[in-house]
Write a protein that binds this DNA or RNA. Structure first.
Lengths: 253, 253
DNA sequence: AACAACGTTCCATAATACGGAACAAAAAAT
DNA sequence: ATTTTTTGTTCCGTATTATGGAACGTTGTT
């Protein structure tokens, strides 16, 4: 469990720099990371020599280097899912005009691996690669519902049930009930459980074995994603799209 | 100039892992990196805790984590160029049906930041984020041609002139001549100077100040990219596209 | 059943990373 | 124009931290 200090610090610097796409100077990094300038200077020189960081010629500010781009373009583990899902999710987005997120599970969290934005003026903030807990998101519930009992137990054991809104699930028992419902229904709701004023509906993506390997959701403000719209329109369309994507991936259910 | 050893090693591990998108085990990493298993294990545990690496549940192999994806999605420094250029480069690609690369300069090298692939069966291998020297590529010559004298001197001072093919430029004097020609013509050739059997033609992308901030090239095997085709068709089309992209970016020349 | 390959943990050693201090250079304030 | 502040860089003695061999446990193969 003990971590390599210098490495941990350097990765923290990368994380900070990603919040400053136009660059950040050493002094600011020192404040944000609570480290001495000399330490940061030393770490940066290694990061630069490895092209993980680059220094703007004019401003002399430091920013993420192209090696990050290089690495990101070979993470093909999920590229099959993304390319299979994208056209169908784009069609769904055009139809319903709400933001869509594609997710997988990683270390018992939900990770967003793709996103299709609506052209509504009120949009959700989210970022590809960012994370959310499983118990308070529709996509997370879907992924939980597809796990083997042992994987489920493991994923669920570490949950810290935080009340993010009034409706957030607050206990293992509640969650268990909810997951049972999700299994029965074949879709999952996040009924204002993760973020105030936001409702989502999610569905599973299966591989040719029938295993749930990803999920996607339609999200938006409650005044657009009403429960009436969910029941009258979205459940059907989301399910159809989920089925079509799974079919692309070889699932014949 | 002295580097932080543990950090340098960890970044090397990331580089290696990016060659194994389906994962790699510790023992193999140990071979490739010439490090003891215990060292790698320790570095990996930090990388994992920071989500820079993830471990496949089934195979237990290690692969790049989603934090890399997260970082890469906020490197907006060039996103303006990319989004301005993409539609026009796609149109050019459809027209001529050859691979197109978009590049910027970084630490006196050419970095590929976007790529549009032709649907030819014989394609070039290349990868976004990868690098090439400036003196032997069309895109590099263009970028050199746009530099201030001091930037040019700096970029050129560190060149190690390696004969990559029979036609590769071999000296500073030759390069100087070539750059002068590029400036006059407004486009640059890589006439089988970087890779055997490959010819490229490149043109500059300018910002609203008129500064050259990027370049792109059309590349392909010499039997398709003949000098006749270059002169009769490609010079004109590449220049037109370059002008249109620069216009998008505010250049009124 | 024996063996091989792999991942993980432990620990004494010394190599490595650390950060304060001092310096230089640039920017801001007077 | 002069002072003051802020910023980046280099140095170096200290001790904290990273290191890798060895030993152990686990899994899979012959």
């Amino acid at each position: 469990m003990s971590n390599v200090q210098s490495l941990e610090r350097a990765l923290t610097l990368l994380n900070i720099m990603s919040d400053y796409p136009d660059g950040i100077q050493i002094s600011r990094l020192a404040e944000q990371a609570n480290l001495s300038k000399s330490t940061i200077h030393r770490l940066l020189s290694t990061l630069i020599s490895m092209k993980y960081v680059t220094q703007d010629k004019k401003t002399e500010k430091y920013m993420l280097g192209y090696q990050i781009l290089f690495l990101s373009r070979n993470m093909t583990a999920d590229s099959g899912i993304i390319s299979a899902a994208r056209p169908l999710l784009e069609r769904l987005c055009e139809d319903i005009n709400e933001t869509i997120h594609l997710c997988v599970e990683d270390s018992s969290e939900v990770v967003y691996i793709d996103k299709i934005e609506s052209n509504q003026t009120i949009r959700m903030y989210s970022r590809i690669g960012s994370r959310n807990p499983m118990y308070c998101t529709g996509v997370g519930k879907i992924l939980l519902s597809g796990m083997t009992p042992s994987d489920y137990d493991h994923a669920v054991s570490s949950i810290d049930f935080v009340k993010r809104t009034a409706k957030t699930i607050g206990s293992l028992e509640e969650l268990e009930e909810e997951i049972a419902l999700v299994k029965k229904q074949g879709y999952a709701l996040d009924n204002i459980e993760n973020e105030e004023g936001i409702r989502c509906i999610a569905a599973p993506i299966r591989d040719f074995h029938g295993n749930i390997i990803a999920s996607f959701s339609v999200s938006g403000p409650v005044h657009r994603i009403t429960m009436e719209r969910v029941n009258d329109e979205l459940v059907r369309k989301v399910r159809e799209t989920a089925k079509a994507i799974s079919h692309e991936l070889g699932f014949r259910g």
